[in-house]
Each structure stands twice: as C-alpha cells, then as structure tokens.
Write a protein that binds this DNA or RNA. Structure first.
Lengths: 156, 156
DNA sequence: TGACATCGACAACCATGTTGTCTACAGTGA
DNA sequence: TCACTGTAGACAACATGGTTGTCGATGTCA
C-alpha cells in the first residue's frame, strides 16, 4: 500500500476529528451544547487541582489571561464556580460543579463508546496493537492530558 | 492495555502533531519559514486547478474572503503569483511558482522521511497494518487532501 | 518595613475565520 | 441591444481564542 507521509498525517488528523466530532455532537444532544475539547482539558486540569486562573494557565501552557477567559466561559455555562480564597485575597478559587463532573463523565463515556465501535469494526487485538504502536511512535507527548495548548483545533 | 477513548483521541492528535511539527521545523530549516499546513493545502488545491480566490474557497470549504487572505499570504511569501485573467476581467488567475512547487516537494519529502523513521521503529508490516486500520476507521473523510477547513489547528 | 513576586483585571493587538455590502464585469434571454 | 442575473474580488465589521503589557491589590521574605 505504501501511503505517503502526508496521507498518514491526514489519517491521524481524520481519526482525531472523527472521535472529537462524535463526542461534541453526542454531548450537545445530551444537554451540553457548545462544549469543546478545550473546555474538557481545562475542566480536567481544574479537577486535578488547578484552582486558579494563573495555575490553570501554567498547567495548560497558556497565558493566565487566556486561562481566565476559559474559566469565564466555564463559569458562564455552569461547569465551575469561583469564590474568593479565604487564605489569599488575591486569588479566586475555582471548583468543578456537579454539572462539570457530569460533562466529563459523559464525554468519557461517549469516547469510550466510539472506541468500542472501532474495536468491533477492526477487532480487539488489532485496535490494541494500533494503540500500542501509537504509544511507541508518539511517546510520552500525548499522555499528559493536562498540558496541551495544542487542542486549539477543535470543531471549528 | 485497554486505554480509554479519550487517550486514544489524544494519541491521534499527538501523532498528527508530531508529524506536522517535524515538517514545519524541517521546512523552516530549509528556507521555508512560517510555512503552515494551511498553506500546504491551499497550495495543493491551487496546483490542482483552483486558480482563483473564489475557486479556492469552494474547494477548501472556506469563504472566498478567507481564501483571498490565504492567497495574499502565499503571494507575499512568493509561493504563488497572480495575474489578471485575459478571458475574464473580474478574475485574477493564481499560479504556483517554482518556489511553491519546491516547498510542496520538500514537505512531502520530510513527511515521507518521518514515516520511514516510524517504519524502522515499529516495523514495516506493523505500520502498514496501522495505516490500513486507520483507513477503515476514518473512511474516506481523510483522503481528499483538498477539502478540509479542519486543518486550522496548525503549529500555533 | 521595604523590596519584590504574584493574583486577577483590563486594554490593545494578532491571526484566522465569518457575514454583509459594494462595484465591476460576464452571460443570457427577450 | 439591453436589462437581468450571477459571479469575482475588495472592503468593512465582527467573533473567537490566543498574545503582551500594564496596573492596583495583596502576599512574602529579608
């Protein structure tokens, strides 16, 4: 077959897009419209302890201003709440709400379901080996779900 | 191993990013700084016959204004030239320059080299099967290199 | 106590897309 | 031949999601 390198790149992008689009569409259908991958990552980082804008910025490799905007968006949609930090009057502590945890759980479920469909399609062993090879090729870069500023691609 | 669906998505994104970053960096080192995937796709479309802004817009599923901006960027960097169409005074015909063909060839070569490295790393048969499975999973969506507005992710 | 760091807010800017509007020109049919 | 309709490209305004720079308030440490 010997596809070209460019096609290979496109294939990866297509696979990612396919999963993410599925998730976005499904989440919208389940009452979480406008929920984008960026939000998912931010929410994860907040749940993991990034409880202020500056903190979130550092963890997601983005300026604190950008992080503040993301938090504002999450706040507006009810995925997080913020309150003044009693320990430090400069800070505002951000916390994930029940709705926030819900959207994370649903997102995970949707992606897991998509993965299951693929598993059925090409076989469990094949998918496992595909994943294993990807891990080798990509290395650690993809593992830290907290980090990427490179999730900016999104749906749009 | 049974990785989660979210990890799988991240893995795909990581693989894509890895290839694209390699290509962008390499191209920059070879005298094509600031050349982004979007430019690559536009250039390909132009070479394939999209010789006007409106045309390019249609082919890459983007507004003609956005296409015009992309053309302006390519123009500025010397990858295309434009001239009034003698047949139709409304149009400006866009053509890929030698430099434009060069960057396309180099890009292809760089990606091909990256693919070769992976082939060595995990084995030729493994890479082939990975690609074959991806083709099954992604379907036709990734094949038409001309289309995607979804290459907006980029380096930045 | 004073120097310095950090927090969040605000403003300005950039990149890359969008829509809407405008003028020039092409093509077509009465 | 002429009016109508469609299309090309230019321009303006705006949305999104980043950036940098600056500022006042607050914390921290010598």
């Amino acid at each position: 077959m010997s596809r070209s390198g460019a096609d290979l790149a496109l294939l990866f992008l297509g696979a990612y897009r396919s999963l993410v689009d599925t998730a976005t569409t499904e989440l919208a259908a389940r009452g979480h419209a406008e929920f984008k991958p960026v939000h998912e990552f931010a929410l994860r980082a907040i749940a993991a302890g990034a409880d202020s804008a500056s903190d979130l910025g550092r963890r997601t490799s983005v300026s604190k201003q950008a992080a503040a905007k993301t938090i504002a968006a999450l706040l507006e949609r009810g995925y997080v709440v913020s309150s003044p930090d009693p320990q430090d009057a400069r800070r505002k502590r951000v916390e994930v709400t029940a709705r926030g945890f819900d959207v994370m759980a649903q997102g995970e479920a949707v992606l897991e379901a998509a993965r299951k469909r693929w598993e059925i399609q090409i076989g469990s062993a094949q998918l496992a080996s595909l994943e294993a090879h990807l891990v080798i090729l990509v290395g650690d870069a993809a593992i830290q779900a907290d980090a990427p500023g490179w999730v900016a691609d999104d749906s749009q």
